[in-house]
Nucleic acid binder design. Structure first.
Lengths: 342, 342
DNA sequence: GCATAAATTCAAAGCGCTTTGGAGAAATCC
DNA sequence: GGATTTCTCCAAAGCGCTTTGAATTTATGC
């Protein structure tokens, strides 16, 4: 059923029916109800393409799928996307996922813009001076950034308080008696990674604990790197009695390393992980339950979709930015340091 | 730049320009080249919505994101989606991701169809008598299934040889001396899970080894369930000397369980996992490197996108189905059984 | 009760593209 | 060399919707 037919069926013009359905004020309440009922009855719903052609919006937002950079292409991606999709479907928007070509990300973004297949773009995993952000602001193409940069030009972004998360975690560990605390986080250069290191350093500084550069590790997020790096850390003398893990994957590897060295988890060596809240990797179900800094990446996805729609509606980007706090949730993988049995 | 402008620029009609660009035969070769060059020069590319409106195709295919069923919403999803997106972008198609509502999946599919926002649908994770497949064939809505069902009505699908994978793995383990082999796979009801169990049983049957029902476990794919179930299995007497894991996540948990029981991996207890090929969870990087049955879920995604386009082009669905073989890759996590040291 | 304002409704003009049905020019045939 | 056939190219009609500008009806003011 198309608009014309519905209008004929009702004995009204297409104009009126369209307005009734789209909530325009200049239509009688009784008429509107009659139209709505008929639309429901005949199962009418507007042809998305025609509608978009008419209003001059593509009706889709784009996001690039990082292809080779494994650190950005894990479970995080799927959670984040899911949040995006959830919100976008409410706004009748499509999500166009484009794979980046030949590792030349910037070119992929440019192509996405000039393809005219998206109204706006979502950018993730920025570096401090992210060239994509620079390019997009320069090109005045609507986008929202998940994360932050040091780029001055105004743009919309949403980030979590990464510095706060690690500061909180480290401070807590210090307060319960730890003096040797290591961190294993994502690759250097990424804003989140830098911020976390900053938070970590601040906590140590504030409590007068010297920073041992060997204890700061930047690596890809994965079970394996967690395992290897933790093994290395634990072989130092003195070894860290607590490890901050940048992701749940990393933390799993750290768990394994601690056990393989024969230490007791949460006693001889504590672990605090950053938890992006995966439905299938639950911190509280682990043994022992994992102490985490928690912030839902899925919620962030939803919210970012909302923000992008606001940008598209013309809201000034200067006013669109949010920093989400991160909760520290104490569980069994962390506790006061206990001297080894041996 | 729009078509009209480009046509004026070239001193041609919109018709000719459109045809030249879309590869229609009735246009002079010289003219076509002139048009292509100009298009490139001015950065012209057709407005997707206008084009779709004109040709009567939505230009997008849909896929539902399972919301609560954690077993279907892991890293698999993101790999699979990535494969889809890669191929679809070649066909100038969008991927519309819809979250399923209120756990009523069937209703979500119906809504997706009647929303008229997709030309076709991709269905994943089927059960043997999947109601979504039944509904979609009934409604004659184009779709491709990732997996298989027992439903007779013709429809397009692509599946891997799950039975063969587990048969191969089990047979190999038996041949190198194992007599007590367990399997931990996904939830019962799903086709892949049933097929794997069938393959496992066939292997045992063929070699005359009795099937111990306690050794067949169906659970969600996750590190934790792998850990718990493997611990349970290893507490039996006699305990399994080899465990087939349905996913890499599960396998990680199984690794942990084996170690926590003090067994040596690949000697006292062997593990073979099914590997969907995640860029960030690499079987050969593990310690010990994991023996796997391998099949890329990302490639499957790409191929399924291709198949769906063929369905949309009118190819009869009866002729569209593929079964992909699965390779068994021997590494260090499996070997002849060795008696425990204790 | 008539002018004026407000509330409804409508006809028609796009949105940017593809495609039908011809028309004119060039090539082929006998 | 005139009649066909074959190449190229074009004007115009949609695709299904929104929106402008105007017309009609109804309510309000004095």
């Amino acid at each position: 059923m198309k608009l014309k037919e519905l209008a004929e069926e009702l004995g009204l013009s297409q104009t009126t029916v369209s307005r009734a359905l789209n909530g325009y004020p200049e239509v009688n309440k009784a008429t509107r109800e009659r139209v709505s009922e008929a639309a429901l009855k005949f199962g009418y719903s507007a042809n998305a393409n025609a509608r978009r052609l008419a209003i001059g919006r593509i009706g889709a937002i784009g996001i690039l799928m990082p292809r080779d950079r494994s650190e950005r292409f894990g479970p995080h991606t799927s959670e984040f996307f899911s949040g995006l999709a959830e919100q976008l479907s409410r706004d009748e928007m499509d999500l166009l996922m484009s794979p980046s070509i030949n590792n030349d990300e910037l070119a992929a973004y440019k192509r996405l813009i000039s393809s005219k297949r998206v109204d706006g773009i979502i950018v993730t995993g920025p570096t401090l001076m992210d060239e994509r952000v620079a390019m997009l602001t320069e090109a005045k193409f609507p986008f929202v950034l998940h994360g932050r940069t040091n780029i001055a030009a105004p743009h919309a972004w949403l980030d979590i308080d990464n510095a706060g998360a690690f500061r909180q975690a480290a401070t807590h560990l210090i307060d319960i008696g730890h003096r040797h605390i290591a961190m294993i986080d994502g690759l250097k250069g990424h804003t989140f990674s830098e911020h976390r290191e900053t938070g970590y350093r601040e906590a140590l500084l504030e409590r007068g604990i010297p920073v041992d550069p060997r204890f700061i590790v930047h690596e890809r997020f994965s079970d394996e790197t967690g395992f290897h790096e933790a093994q290395r850390l634990l072989s130092y003398t003195p070894h860290p009695t607590a490890i901050l893990a940048g992701s749940m994957m990393t933390a799993l590897g750290v768990f394994r390393a601690i056990r393989s060295k024969g230490y007791e988890l949460g006693k001889e060596v504590s672990v605090v992980a950053h938890d992006d809240v995966f439905p299938y990797l639950n911190a509280s179900n682990m043994v022992p339950a994992m102490t985490t800094t928690r912030s839902s990446i899925r919620s962030a996805g939803s919210r970012i979709a909302e923000l992008l729609v606001r940008v598209l509606d013309g809201e000034p980007v200067e006013s669109i930015h949010e920093i989400w706090p991160v909760e520290l949730i104490l569980r069994q993988s962390s506790g006061p340091p206990v001297a080894p049995r041996r």
